[in-house]
Amino acid sequence: MTVETHDLVKRFGGFAALEGVTLQARPGEFLALLGPSGSGKTTLLRIMAGLDFPDSGRVTFDGVDMSDRPARERGIGFVFQHYALFRHMSVADNIAFGLTVRPRRDRPAASAIAARVKELLDLVQLPDLGKRYPAQLSGGQRQRVALARALAVEPRVLLLDEPFGALDAKVRKDLRRWLRAVHDASHVTSVFVTHDQEEALDLADRVVVMNKGRIEQVDTPDAVYNRPATAFVCDFLGNANRFECALRGGGVEIGGLTLPNAAPPAGDGRGQAFVRPHEFDIAAAGQPGIAATLRRVAHTGALAALECEVEGRIVEATSARPPEGLTPGDALTLVPTTVRAYPA
């Protein structure tokens, strides 16, 4: 199903959570809403769900206006960061809830509900835990149950609010691979919120990067990472180092060098340039490039991480083959290989 929002605006008191958000999630797509806290991503998700309502703008499902419909009439599945399992119900009763609250004429028979619950317990790989209570489960198990509960009603769209946010790193990685597999098997349009760029890039078909209630860029993980549309996206993804620079004739003037701009073309003038840690060559002091002082070297496996100081600021560079014999305090030159620059 296609989920669309049209020019959504939402304010909480004086705080503008959304300032005109237009977005489309395509049928069967796995869409990530990525942004720092306060960027409006959770508000956007809750408005899609009907748990919050916009001050203006519309939400449509397959072209049908849903703006005034409450959550219960939208046919959605919603997964909460803190699971929101019904604490006084067994796992099986939690999963069956969405089916048992249907009006009598639409409600499946008890045996059909039990069969569906069993099927879902198998799907989330917890076949023997139906009689347990949420408090008796680990975080990862609870989130699986929450997902099974949301899928039980065969939602037209699955909305997930930081679904892995409360889990530890190992469980988080396992669970997201598994979630992707569940999605690929069910083909239900899914939208999930995250502040973790790695998670978004790893999991999503397309990533929506949000900042201060606006969409900065919507594109594939590859495109938002390699062709960031705005300075914010470039800065937010990939731990880029930022430099002052000048933009002239399509080139970027930085540290005495003129380099091609890997970002979308911009007019002449002052700019800010971003260079990711792995996009530096390390050269001897006095060479053309950015003069730096080495502060620390850390050899982390295949790559060496160099912490350098440039004009009083810290710059991170990684190199597979750093010059040998470098010690803290040495002067060196950082030569950017790829630069993305945006008007300041």
Binding site: E73, F80, L85
Partner: peptide, 11 residues
Amino acid sequence: DEEEAARSLGA
């Protein structure tokens, strides 16, 4: 959260 979950499930 639990009330919102119940509403999203159609209650």
